[in-house]
Design a protein around this nucleic acid. Structure first.
Lengths: 151, 151
DNA sequence: CTGATAGTTGAAGTCAACTTCAAGTCAAGT
DNA sequence: ACTTGACTTGAAGTTGACTTCAACTATCAG
C-alpha cells in the first residue's frame, strides 16, 4: 500500500465511495479493470477513479448499469479518454434529465388539479394515468436515485 | 360475469390496468379486499377501482407499497372514503414531488457546469457527488416510475 | 349437460444491483 | 519471523414488486 502508482481495492473504495464488494461486482461485469499482484490481489490504476466517478454520475442521472456499460463502450480503444470524451458522454444526459423533470412537473400540475376534486379517475386523472395510457409495465421503482433520496 | 354489482378479477384487471397476478398480490399484502363466490373465486366491489387508482397514482409519485399501505390505513374505518379523503392523501404528495423536481433540477444545473469541463471530480463535481456527500446507500433504482418511462 | 373461458392455489422464479458469508491467503511494519 | 489488517473466492442472500408455473376448478352461454 506504500506510495506506488497503483491503488488497492480498499483505497479505491474509500476514494470512490463504492464498497469493495461493488468494485468486485463491477469488475465481474466488465465495467472496470484491475491488474493483479503475484499474490492475486487487485491493483487499480489511478484513472479508474474517473471511470468510477462517471459510473456514479450516470447512476445519479438514472442510468442502469447496462446503459453505463454501453456508454463506456463508446470511449476510444487506443488512447486514454480525454475530458472531451467524458464531456460528450455527460452531454447526452441533459435531454434525459429534461424529460424526467418535465414528466415530474406534468405529474405535479396534474396533482394540483386533482387535489381539489379527489377524483383519481382511472380514465381522466393525470395522477393515476399520467401518460394517458393504462397498463404500466415493469417492476416498480422509486423516483429518485439513491444518492438523492431523503435520508 | 353477468351484470351484477360485483366484478371478477379479470374485469378489475382490465379496468384498473393491473395484471391479475398483481391484484392477487395486493390482496395477499392487504392492500385490497375481495369477497368470494361459493366456488372460491374473487368478487370485487366497484370501489376497489378507486382504491387501485390511488395505488397507481401513489406508485407514480414514487411511493413504495409500504407507504401506500400506511396512507390507506389513515382512511376512516366505518364509512366509505369521501373525495375529501382521497384529496387529503393526494395533497401530501405535493411536497414530495416538489422535492424530487428540485433534486433533478439541481442535478441538471450541475450537469450544465460539468459539460464544459468534463471533470467528474469525485470531490467537487455536482454530477458524481450531487449532495456533497460520498457513499450512497441502497439498491440501485431508476429515476422515473414505470408509467413515465420512455417507451 | 357440455365445452370454452376464466379463475384458483402455493411455491418458485425474475430482475437489478449489490451485500454477506465462510474459510482461507497476502502484504507489510517491526 | 510474526502478527495484524486487508485481501481473496464462489455461492448464496437481499429487497421490492411482482410474474410464472402446474395442476386443478368454477362459471356460464347455449
Amino acid at each position: 500500500m506504500r506510495t506506488t502508482d497503483l491503488l488497492t481495492v480498499g483505497e479505491v473504495a474509500h476514494r470512490s465511495g463504492f464498497a469493495p464488494s461493488a468494485l468486485r461486482f463491477y469488475e465481474r461485469v466488465g465495467l472496470v479493470h484491475a491488474a493483479r499482484t503475484s499474490g492475486g490481489q487487485r491493483r487499480y490504476q489511478r484513472n479508474v477513479l474517473r471511470r468510477l466517478a462517471f459510473i456514479r454520475a450516470a447512476r445519479n442521472v438514472g442510468l442502469s448499469l447496462d446503459e453505463v456499460a454501453a456508454a463506456l463502450a463508446t470511449l476510444p480503444d487506443g488512447r486514454a479518454p480525454t475530458k472531451e470524451d467524458w464531456s460528450r458522454l455527460s452531454r447526452s444526459w441533459r435531454g434525459r434529465l429534461d424529460e424526467q423533470i418535465a414528466a415530474l412537473t406534468k405529474l405535479r400540475d396534474g396533482l394540483d388539479s386533482c387535489i381539489g376534486c379527489g377524483c383519481l379517475s382511472l380514465r381522466t386523472c393525470a395522477m393515476s394515468n399520467p401518460d394517458d395510457t393504462l397498463a404500466a409495465r415493469g417492476p416498480g421503482a422509486a423516483y429518485l436515485p439513491p444518492a438523492l433520496r431523503a435520508h
